[in-house]
Simulated assay, not measured.
Amino acid sequence: MTITQNETHENTLLPGAEIVVGIRSLLIWAVVAATLLAGFLRGSSGSCSGGVTGSGGFLDAEGRPTDAPPMCGSITMSANPLVYVAIALIVVLSLTRILRRADTIERALRILNNARMGIVVLTLVTFVVGYVAFATVRVDDWSSYSLLYPFPFATFDISTRTMGATG
């Protein structure tokens, strides 16, 4: 039996290979988005509301001598774990939707493209909201501070201590 050239190049791809390529692409975008969020959505700030005099005493936030040590604090921002859950849900729900509703390859690819765009938009919104929230942090005195809490995009870890205290 001889094989003609038409028979060798015809149907060389697995049936549904376009969908497998689309799913692989969606998974790569999800992993890259989660990695970017974990690596680059970070911020930290710390300061003390006051200081130390030359004679070893303490100063308050206005520069007046005081007996009590001033408050120091730090704020650390990172991506909220709910963002990672949302990325995973986008992937799982899009695959479920393909299995239930996609009757053509084009429809399945459209669902995958929409899911990919959803991941991109969620990642970009998380970056913008997180950094805007971090930029709005105002600390005049660590006994009272204000911040725009960007739930569910980012989380803040706030810690306060007296000057000279470790931890």
Rank of each mutant, 00 (worst) to 15 (best):
L82A: 13
T162S: 11
V52A: 10
C72G: 07
A79Y: 03
T96L: 15
G39S: 15
Y84V: 01
G118V: 06
A79R: 01
G73Y: 10
S47P: 06
G51E: 09
V137D: 00
F151W: 12
D141A: 07
Y84P: 00
D141G: 02
F58C: 05
T155D: 13
M77V: 15
F127G: 03
S94G: 12
F127V: 03
V137F: 03
F153D: 05
S144C: 01
G63V: 08
R161P: 12
A133G: 13
L93M: 13
S144N: 10
C48P: 13
V120N: 05
S47Y: 05
F58W: 15
T96H: 07
G130Y: 02
D67V: 09
I111N: 01
I75P: 02
T66P: 08
S159D: 13
M77E: 08
D103W: 07
G39R: 12
G46P: 02
L37A: 12
A133L: 06
T155I: 10
R101L: 10
T76R: 14
S159Q: 15
F40R: 14
G130V: 07
V120H: 06
M77D: 02
T155K: 07
T123L: 04
G57D: 15
R42L: 11
D157V: 12
I119F: 01
S78N: 14
A38W: 08
Y131G: 02
T162Y: 13
V120M: 06
M77H: 08
R116E: 07
N113C: 01
T136D: 14
N113T: 13
A61E: 14
I158Y: 06
G50Q: 09
P65G: 08
G118T: 04
G43K: 09
R138P: 00
